[in-house]
Simulated assay, not measured.
Amino acid sequence: MNKEVTGTLPFCVEKLRQNAVIAYPTEAVFGLGCDPDDENAVMRLLALKQRPVEKGLILIAADYQQLEPYVSDRELSVEQRERMFARWPGPVTWVLPATPQTPRWLTGRFDSLAVRVSDHPGVQALCRAFGKPLVSTSANLTGLPPCRTVDEVLQQFGADFPVMKGETGGRDNPSEIRDVISGELIRQG
């Protein structure tokens, strides 16, 4: 296939619709992502990362509306919503109560789900074109540093791995993670 076509937004959206795992640039590093509603795609992503399903995953989205089917918004107070929206879109991941319908392959052993509305233009375009959020975890094989360039993704995952061309947002650290209910810092950003 033509290498110029492989890194484009339409190519990556088509791969997602075919239940593939892709890599794409985020605020700090490249992420690995797939359709959150496809258990087989999520299991392939977890196998690539050698990550146990019990740990749960992050969903990344273009806007909060894309996340609403997965989170129990009615459990949030006005103050908790305001605290969350004050930091979005941006590099802050919030842990919210999950709906009972949210698949366990996303929540792991938890009754909550980590979610982020990204301000990265590539993530925004990808989620809008795909029409829903993506699973998002750092693009790296176990024991190796997260990929920060397209070339690093191809070195770690192979020359034919679907990767959206683009630049990361230039941040040094992955997203901060906070619990929306308590405000507690889970991971420093």
Rank of each mutant, 00 (worst) to 15 (best):
residue 90 G to C: 06
residue 101 Q to R: 15
residue 147 C to A: 15
residue 104 R to M: 14
residue 159 A to G: 09
residue 84 M to P: 05
residue 117 V to T: 07
residue 86 A to I: 08
residue 78 V to N: 14
residue 101 Q to V: 02
residue 104 R to L: 15
residue 88 W to F: 04
residue 149 T to W: 04
residue 76 L to N: 04
residue 115 V to K: 00
residue 142 T to E: 13
residue 87 R to H: 13
residue 155 Q to W: 08
residue 162 P to W: 09
residue 137 T to S: 14
residue 86 A to H: 04
residue 131 G to P: 08
residue 108 G to P: 00
residue 160 D to R: 08
residue 133 P to Y: 00
residue 154 L to R: 11
residue 111 D to W: 08
residue 94 W to E: 13
residue 91 P to C: 08
residue 124 Q to C: 13
residue 145 P to I: 07
residue 117 V to G: 02
residue 110 F to H: 15
residue 105 W to D: 10
residue 161 F to E: 03
residue 154 L to E: 11
residue 127 C to R: 01
residue 150 V to N: 10
residue 141 L to G: 13
residue 114 A to F: 03
residue 91 P to E: 01
residue 97 P to E: 00
residue 94 W to F: 12
residue 91 P to R: 11
residue 102 T to R: 03
residue 121 P to Q: 08
residue 149 T to N: 12
residue 113 L to Q: 05
residue 128 R to S: 14
residue 123 V to I: 11
residue 80 Q to H: 10
residue 119 D to N: 15
residue 110 F to G: 04
residue 146 P to A: 14
residue 84 M to H: 02
residue 159 A to T: 13
residue 160 D to V: 07
residue 113 L to A: 06
residue 153 V to H: 04
residue 77 S to V: 03
residue 111 D to S: 14
residue 152 E to Y: 05
residue 96 L to S: 02
residue 155 Q to E: 15
residue 96 L to V: 02
residue 82 E to R: 12
residue 90 G to E: 02
residue 94 W to S: 12
residue 112 S to D: 12
residue 147 C to V: 11
residue 109 R to T: 07
residue 98 A to V: 01
residue 102 T to N: 04
residue 106 L to H: 02
residue 79 E to N: 14
residue 125 A to F: 01
residue 135 V to W: 00
residue 86 A to W: 01
residue 158 G to R: 09
residue 127 C to V: 09
residue 108 G to N: 03
residue 149 T to L: 05
residue 128 R to A: 12
residue 120 H to G: 14
residue 76 L to D: 02
residue 81 R to C: 13
residue 115 V to D: 06
residue 77 S to F: 03
residue 112 S to Q: 13
residue 92 V to A: 10
residue 103 P to D: 06
residue 126 L to G: 02
residue 139 A to V: 07
residue 107 T to K: 09
residue 78 V to M: 12
residue 121 P to G: 14
residue 101 Q to E: 13
residue 128 R to P: 09
residue 142 T to Y: 01
residue 158 G to S: 10
residue 95 V to I: 15
residue 90 G to L: 01
residue 130 F to E: 05
residue 127 C to W: 00
residue 120 H to A: 11
residue 134 L to E: 12
residue 138 S to I: 14
residue 139 A to N: 06
residue 160 D to C: 09
residue 149 T to P: 03
residue 76 L to V: 03
